[in-house]
C-alpha cells in the first residue's frame, strides 16, 4: 500500500505544435517527457520505505543505475492495454511506423516484447509498483557504500511481492519468481535505450534538459 500511494501522477507529452512532424520533433518530445518524469521518479524513490534513510551517495547510485528501467517499466505498464503501440503518455502513443520515423525501431520492438510478456502474465498494478521498486534496489552499482542497507531495502520489497502473491495468487507459487525473471529483459532494454539516447545526444540535433543529460552521462 505504501508503494501504491507513492505512485507518481500522470505526465503529458504536449508535443510542440510549432515543430514540423519529423524525427527531431519526436525525439525532442520524448526527451522532454523523460526529463519531467525523472523529476517525479526521484520524488517517488524518496517515498519508498527505507530509501531516504540510505546514504545520499547510495540513493544517487541506485537512481543513476535504474532510472531508465523505471522510466521504461512505466511506459510498459501504460501500454498493456494498447495494441502494438507504446503509450509514452496519454497524449503520446507511438506505433512501429512512428518509431521507425523517430529512428528508434529496435527500442520500440524491445519495449513491446516486455509489454507482451507482462500482458500474457496479466501484470497487476500492485505487481508493477513492486517490480519497479525491486528494479531500483537491484541497480547493481559497483560503487554502493552500504550494500547491506541496499540489500535490506530489496529484501523488504521482495517480501512484499511474495506476500502479495501468496494472498492473491495462492494457486501459482511461481508467479513472484516469474515476475522477477522478467528483470533481465528490462535491464537489457534499458541498456539499449540509454545507448540510443547517448548517440542521439552525440548527434547534437535534439535539445535535452539537464537532469536527463546528467543521468545519461552517469551511464555513458
Amino acid at each position: 500500500s505504501h508503494l501504491l500511494e507513492a505512485e507518481p501522477e500522470k505526465v503529458y507529452a504536449m508535443p510542440d505544435p510549432a515543430l514540423p512532424d519529423d524525427d527531431i520533433k519526436a525525439l525532442t518530445t520524448l526527451c522532454d517527457l523523460a526529463d519531467r518524469e525523472l523529476v517525479l521518479n526521484i520524488g517517488w524513490a524518496k517515498h519508498l520505505p527505507g530509501f531516504s534513510s540510505l546514504r545520499l551517495a547510495d540513493q544517487m547510485r541506485l537512481l543513476q543505475g535504474a532510472w531508465m528501467e523505471v522510466l521504461l517499466l512505466r511506459v510498459v505498464f501504460r501500454s498493456l492495454g494498447a495494441q502494438d503501440r507504446l503509450v509514452f503518455a496519454e497524449d503520446y502513443v507511438m506505433d512501429a511506423a512512428q518509431a521507425r520515423l523517430a529512428g528508434l525501431p529496435d527500442l520500440h520492438a524491445g519495449v513491446l516484447q516486455l509489454v507482451r510478456k507482462y500482458r500474457a502474465m496479466g501484470l497487476e498494478m500492485e505487481e508493477f509498483v513492486t517490480l519497479k521498486a525491486i528494479a531500483l534496489a537491484n541497480a547493481d552499482s559497483m560503487h554502493i557504500e552500504d550494500a547491506e542497507a541496499v540489500q535490506k531495502l530489496q529484501d523488504c520489497v521482495h517480501e512484499a511481492l511474495q506476500d502479495y502473491e501468496r494472498a492473491r495468487h495462492p494457486g501459482d507459487p511461481r508467479r513472484a519468481g516469474r515476475l522477477i525473471m522478467t528483470l533481465p529483459l528490462l535491464r537489457q532494454t534499458a541498456t539499449m535505450a540509454v545507448r540510443s539516447f547517448c548517440s542521439i545526444r552525440q548527434d547534437g540535433r535534439v535539445p535535452m534538459h539537464k537532469l536527463f543529460l546528467e543521468l545519461l552521462e552517469a551511464n555513458a
Partner: peptide
C-alpha cells in the same frame, strides 16, 4: 559529485 548536481539537489529537497 559536481557532475550530478541536479540529482543531488532533488534528493536533498524535503518534498
Amino acid at each position: 559529485k559536481e557532475k550530478h548536481k541536479i540529482l543531488h539537489r532533488l534528493l536533498q529537497n524535503s518534498t
